[in-house]
Simulated assay, not measured.
Amino acid sequence: MRKSPFKIEICVEGTDGLIAAQNAGADRVELCASLIEGGLTPSLGVVREALQVATIPFHVIIRPRGGDFLYSEVEFNSMLADIAALREMGNVAGVVIGCLTSDGRIDEERTAALVAAARPMAVTCHRAFDMTAEYRAALEALIACGVDRVLTSGQRDTAIEGSEILKDCMAIADGRIVIMACGGLDADTIAQVRRETGVDEMHFAALKTLKSGMTFRNPHVGMGGTAIEREYEVTVTDTEAVRATIAAARGAL
């Protein structure tokens, strides 16, 4: 099958992150809330604002909570409802999903239902794939469900550690599904991973922590059980780090 053009996707939190990523040369964005939990579904207000400011396509993660990818019926219904709301907006390019069974397989029934609900939007399976018991079977299951791409670090903490599995996934996919590598990618590692694996696309977050602009600080309250210091920090996408990592990736071949 014909190979699609190489693309780089940046994982961001909110519209400010989207603007930073597109200014730095990203091809696409994964739009999330709460990256501290690995990314949760952003509010519809955030998505509507993103549609106003975006100059590149963005995909919205559909993940109702942190933790595992074994969802209750109520949680699954909320995923369908979020997808329906995004589809009705008309200009959202894609969604990012992932549902597993308790024994570590792709939940094919639910995945197929989410794909059907999302069309004509593109559908990516996120790193739930990396939590499956057998990646070859998981990849075939995603293909059978009509998923367009899979985000994976090769079932390891980093793409460098998972490079052999990433290469194997490329061979198994054979153009039937896009393999998008992630995991510890930055300006120092991304070129090596691209050369060693030949993946179709690459995905990373480039974050930095800024001090809050708050001048009044209550020393007695930590919201949500977090350390008090966290209340006065803001995590943002680092435009220069995104730009440098994209340059390293594009110069790899």
Rank of each mutant, 00 (worst) to 15 (best):
T55C: 05
D186C: 14
G198T: 08
H203C: 07
N77R: 14
G17R: 05
A206D: 06
L100C: 12
L114N: 07
L139P: 05
R63G: 00
D238W: 02
V150E: 01
T209E: 11
R48L: 12
D130E: 03
S102N: 13
E9V: 05
R127Y: 00
F129G: 01
V74M: 12
T209C: 09
M89P: 09
A141M: 10
E109C: 12
E240A: 14
G94E: 06
L80T: 08
M79S: 07
A113V: 09
R28A: 07
A206I: 01
L210D: 01
A241F: 05
A137Y: 07
T245Y: 01
F76R: 08
V234P: 05
R176F: 08
F216H: 08
A171N: 10
E37Y: 09
R194Y: 01
A249E: 05
L35K: 12
I19R: 13
A144V: 01
D16A: 13
E161G: 11
I106R: 06
H220D: 15
I10K: 00
M131N: 13
V193Y: 03
L151W: 02
R217G: 00
D174C: 13
K7C: 11
T189F: 03
D157E: 14
G198I: 02
T245W: 00
M202D: 00
V199L: 06
N77W: 03
V95I: 14
N218L: 08
E164A: 15
A173D: 04
M202A: 13
